[in-house]
Nucleic acid binder design. Structure first.
Lengths: 132, 132, 132, 132
DNA sequence: GTGGTCTAGACCACT
DNA sequence: GTGGTCTAGACCACT
């Protein structure tokens, strides 16, 4: 399944769903024209209230990533992949920007900042090599 | 002034104050034994409710970064600098971890992730050179 | 073809079919006594579920614009043209009423409202001249 | 009160609230920096569930017309008046466009369309003269 | 006091 | 079956 929920996280559940689906679409798990799991279906899968899933779908529709075919379900738009990737990149850029800015303003040296980043990246890329 | 507040940010104001003071202490702006601005003073400076400043001071006290001398004011502890730097590093590490994890799970290539990080870092270090 | 469907529109598809056929009848594309495309035929043409077309035909029948000759098909009634034109006019009147009311209550000046209307009308009448 | 709800209307209640507040801001009833009625307050006034009001406020925030000061309430942004007016004009333009397009495609003559529009406008401007 | 999130459940429209 | 709206009510965080 492409969406993982951490009920304990500070990030609201509906936001976790948005991120999870957007990442999945950016990664090509769902492609243009494909139908997404229905609101009720996904709600059961991730054990969350349907209203919460609906709220996530609403946001993705506003972003032009999915669209409704009334009475049928939610579908991935053709431009979804591009939009989703742009969005993820933008969010990542701003997260990195903020983290770097804070670290430097707290007096951390640039080399130290890069070192920590390298560890983060190495850890994750090693993990994906394990899977492969 | 060492604490900057963005009233429109999604980060709660008390958390922004905590971060700002902690960064300032990590960077050596305030040193062990020094007195911090009083609650009312800081509240006026950054135009915020005194209760909000108090809440931030309480949190920093719990973390052992500042302590109260009743009737005198809030003071920086001796271990404050170390603690603050460890805390900033930890927060940074987890922010980078999250960002990297999401980017990769959205199918972004590791080289691209590093590229974006480099831009963030370059931008900030250039800026600080300009100031110097 | 006289009926155009926008699957992404907020207007329900069956309503779009009703409007499209009614407009066509009002404009004289279909005349009293003429046969309309069968449910299946139209459904294939505009790529829509036959149930949806049927629903539209039912509504037009209720309005006395078309009638069924069992085993033969759907036919345009003699009063259809009059009824359809009255209906379009009524819908238009109420759409204009609503738009004007909102614009004025939002403080827009009457001259400005007329100006925007004139542009709408000019654009469409120029277009129809181009086609002619 | 600036927001009127028609429970029987086909327009969802939350959309009626959005329109009502936006029109009020466009008309200068609420000005930049002013606080809006709280969610609970407005909910009581217009006898609607607080969640429904919240949903409307959320949309207006997304549009940059209002912003939250956490723990305090919702406030009108400085650019709100301009944005709201642009939005109302855009909605009006598209409503008129649609109505005109349908009328013409149903074979109505341009003079007739203008006649109906003039009646709509005259009726409303007479009404506002009565109030004055 | 303020807004934000979430659940449970009803009811409706559309295909 | 599908999504969309609304209510009631709980619980939480922030100022």
């Amino acid at each position: 399944m492409s969406v993982q929920i951490s009920p304990g996280s500070h990030t609201p559940i509906y936001q976790q769903i948005i991120n999870g689906l957007r990442d999945a679409i950016a990664a090509g798990v769902y492609r243009g024209g494909e139908m997404l799991p229905s609101i009720r279906e996904l709600a059961v899968q991730i054990r969350v209230n349907p209203n919460t899933v609906q709220r996530a779908y609403e946001a993705l529709e506003r972003d032009g990533i999915i669209y409704v075919r009334r009475g049928l379900g939610m579908f991935v738009t053709n431009k979804a992949s591009r939009t989703a990737r742009a969005c993820v990149e933008e969010q990542m850029r701003s997260a990195l920007d903020d983290a770097v800015a804070r670290a430097l303003s707290a007096g951390m040296r640039a080399e130290k900042v890069r070192e920590i980043f390298d560890e983060s990246l190495a850890k994750r890329t090693d993990l994906s090599e394990l899977k492969a």
